[in-house]
Nucleic acid binder design. Structure first.
Lengths: 197, 197
DNA sequence: ATTATCTATAGATCTATAGATAATGC
DNA sequence: ATTATCTATAGATCTATAGATAATGC
């Protein structure tokens, strides 16, 4: 189908360019949100970072909220945690990796903090995300330990604690990286869950 | 000293009135910050809640930042945690109490989240607060268990975990109160720290 | 022809200052 | 006389819409 081919290859080029631009914008948005939060991030600040005017940016994302939604959807990175294939002893390494990317952690933490306020466009996203993350964590814990962890908890009781430790440590670490050994603390917690060794 | 007396009683009345007004404003600010965060909170919204114009409010607090500082200083409530007199088994009850005051928890959590962004006026406050809270928690743990907790951790290693659990659970609970038993989870964690019983 | 980007601009806000007026307490 | 509050307003922003112009790819 030459016609179809021409069409789709044309489109492919166009969307490739467009996707590139969108990706640039999303990267910039991620940075600006890390620095100022979503409410404090202006479209103009994001646009400037990719050499566009604010109105030029709105060609790619029709509203500020659409931009945030795209940022949230893009970032399965911060959903890299779960999946039934996961092994618990990878968690320490994952946190070590996060500790090398303070920007991402800061964007995530700023958005999570804002999301508890009323009418925040990320609220539903985070609510659903935590439902899923708790379930996945419980699965991972069950795969590792069965119905009862060495520490005595069921996977379902341990999961929210594990998630809370990860999130809570991020705030302490972002505020005072020198004072908090985030990966070390996570490993401490895993040992606590898993019994003496 | 009749003169001194008259002076101070006059002042006492004035400051009493003024303090009352300031307290009203701080309460309103707490609410508005819970709903919209600090950056999203407008002076006009706070003022309206106490029946003032925005300019009238600025008579009591000269800038928006001064208002936030006053809010943070006022709230030793969220610093009610530490002190060497504390007993660890009160923590569950404290969290139970917090679970009945979602407004306060939400204000705290929204501010903590925002505070990791650049140039946020609460950043230094939270950084210092966590240094102190970790130290106090370590002391409390040491008073209870000595140099080594039953779970195997030192007080200094356990303290950031305990604090992280408290903060992290608050976000999960604020987003989905039905799904998260915050006081129960805290008690689970305390048992984990303290060994089987 | 379509897509990307720009200029112009409307319409809301927002913080903060200046200065007038009312209320309070000697 | 001091304190509390108000009106008026400056000066910045901010998001979003309308419509023109440039670039891209048939």
């Amino acid at each position: 189908m030459p016609y179809g081919d021409r069409m789709s290859s044309t489109r492919a080029v166009r969307t490739a360019r467009s996707h590139e631009r969108r990706a640039e914008i999303l990267r910039a948005a991620l940075e600006v949100i890390a620095e100022r939060g979503y409410r404090g991030a202006s479209l103009a600040a994001v646009a400037e970072r990719v050499g566009l005017t604010q109105q030029g940016l709105l060609h790619h994302f029709p509203t500020k909220e659409a931009l945030l939604v795209a940022v949230l959807e893009e970032r399965d990175q911060w959903d890299a945690v779960p999946s039934s294939q996961w092994r618990l002893d990878l968690l320490g390494s994952l946190v070590e990796y996060n500790a090398m990317r303070p920007g991402i952690v800061q964007t995530f933490s700023a958005l999570l903090g804002e999301s508890v306020t009323e009418g925040h466009p990320a609220r539903e996203f985070f609510t659903q995300r935590y439902v899923g993350v708790r379930e996945s964590m419980a699965e991972v814990l069950r795969a590792e330990y069965g119905e009862r962890l060495p520490g005595g908890l069921t996977p379902e009781r341990a999961a929210p604690l594990l998630v809370a430790v990860l999130d809570g440590l991020q705030y302490q670490w972002l505020l005072d990286p020198e004072a908090v050994d985030m990966p070390g603390a996570v490993r401490d917690f895993l040992e606590l869950l898993g019994g003496e060794g």
